[in-house]
């Protein structure tokens, strides 16, 4: 499988990346190399093998439903570009 420049633009847009024409070409090459490698992996017979859910053999890590300390609001908002009424101010969305 090969992708083209349109696919790169599509993925870049989903990831909110602004790429120059040169960067797009570079990324296209890199992504296609990865896909080539996937082609090799695809040759492995995986019949009867469950898709991997986690790379480590651990499961059921849970915590108790107990309240712990929260962050002070001053700290929460300290890196906010703008704030008002104790909230983060962002450009209008809808």
């Amino acid at each position: 499988m090969k992708i083209n420049i349109k696919d790169v633009e599509y993925v870049a847009n989903l990831a909110r990346l602004e790429l120059s024409e040169e960067e797009k070409t570079q990324q296209l090459e890199k992504l296609n190399k990865i896909l080539d490698y996937m082609e090799i992996l695809n040759k492995v017979d995986t019949k009867g093998v469950q898709p991997l859910a986690h790379v480590l053999p651990i499961n059921n890590v849970l915590r108790k439903d107990e309240v712990h300390e929260t962050l002070e609001r001053e700290k929460t908002l300290q890196n906010a570009p703008e704030e008002a009424q104790g909230m983060f101010r962002v450009p209008k969305i809808v």
Partner: peptide
């Protein structure tokens, strides 16, 4: 472990 509470002051139940 932040409290799950409705109606608190904005951005006080966060970590």
């Amino acid at each position: 472990s932040c409290p799950n509470e409705f109606g608190s002051e904005p951005n006080t139940n966060v970590c």
